[in-house]
């Protein structure tokens, strides 16, 4: 019950902030702009709109996830409001899970607003397709993974450091496919082992990137989408448990 209460309160606090709605509006403007941009090309208006729209949502969703994830716990710690909460009958893990719930809800609501806005715009231009929903759905799970990673970092560093570290994870998370290849080339057993370990330890964010095939209206097997969703949920759960392990040892007295 405490988790839900903390989550809803933090969610309301996050939604009251001005920056997040402004980012959503910017995203919708950029998608609308893509519709005008498409007129400058030959026969590729639909693809261009779908590409720009999905990429716009992905960029803003990732930014929102990093901002929310790295500040949701850190802000409470830095402003010392956590000390007031800890004085009440609230356990540390309840506080952490509540804040994580708030971050996940914020990302979900904002991605849904951007996704619906995007689908309305593409439908109005007659270039919508059902697979676009899958593209937006996996973008949410990518943002969820990044938000959980940001929360994990914010349990032992400042909000700013957590943001920077999560941006690095985002970049490396899209380049992990190189690791097994490089490990294989190294030849050395230890390098090979650590290369493969790092490959599985870092989130493979390419699993959530189906924007290319979606923009071309190609058929995406259900196993690819289902696998990515399960992977995202598992990774986020691991991050939550790891965050809890670190957070448990913190003294806020």
């Amino acid at each position: 019950m405490n988790i839900w209460k903390i989550g809803v309160n933090s969610f309301k606090r996050l939604m009251r902030g001005k920056l997040l709605p402004v980012m959503v509006v910017f995203c919708l403007i950029s998608i609308g702009y893509a519709a005008l941009y498409g007129t400058l090309t030959i026969g590729q208006e639909g693809k261009l709109m779908r590409d720009v729209g999905l990429a716009g949502i992905a960029i803003f969703a990732v930014l929102i996830a990093i901002m929310v994830g790295s500040t949701v716990v850190a802000k409470e710690v830095e402003s010392k409001t956590i000390q007031i909460l800890m004085a009440k009958p609230v356990k540390k893990h309840e506080f952490l899970l509540g804040e994580l719930l708030a971050a996940a809800l914020t990302v979900l609501v904002l991605v849904a607003i951007m996704g619906i806005g995007f689908l309305i715009i593409v439908a109005a231009r007659g270039v919508a397709s059902a697979s676009l929903v899958n593209g937006v759905l996996l973008t949410f799970f990518e943002a969820l993974v990044l938000a959980s990673v940001a929360v994990f970092f914010s349990t032992f560093t400042s909000g700013m450091a957590a943001s920077i570290l999560t941006i690095l994870v985002f970049i490396f998370g899209h380049l992990t496919y190189q690791l097994p290849f490089l490990a294989e080339k190294a030849g050395n057993f230890i390098v090979k082992f650590f290369g493969n370990l790092l490959y599985f330890a870092l989130p493979n964010l390419q699993y959530f990137n189906i924007r290319g095939p979606v923009a071309y209206n190609l058929n995406i097997p259900g196993s690819v989408i289902f696998g990515a969703i399960v992977y995202g949920l598992l990774y986020a759960t691991i991050m939550v448990i790891a965050s809890n392990l670190v957070f448990k040892n913190k003294d806020f007295a």
Partner: peptide, 20 residues
């Protein structure tokens, strides 16, 4: 998931996801 992506010919995407 990797196997499913290879089967669907989706494993060759490079960069940080904004090539298109």
């Amino acid at each position: 998931t990797e196997k499913a992506r290879v089967k669907a010919n989706m494993s060759e995407q490079t960069g940080i996801g904004f090539n298109n």
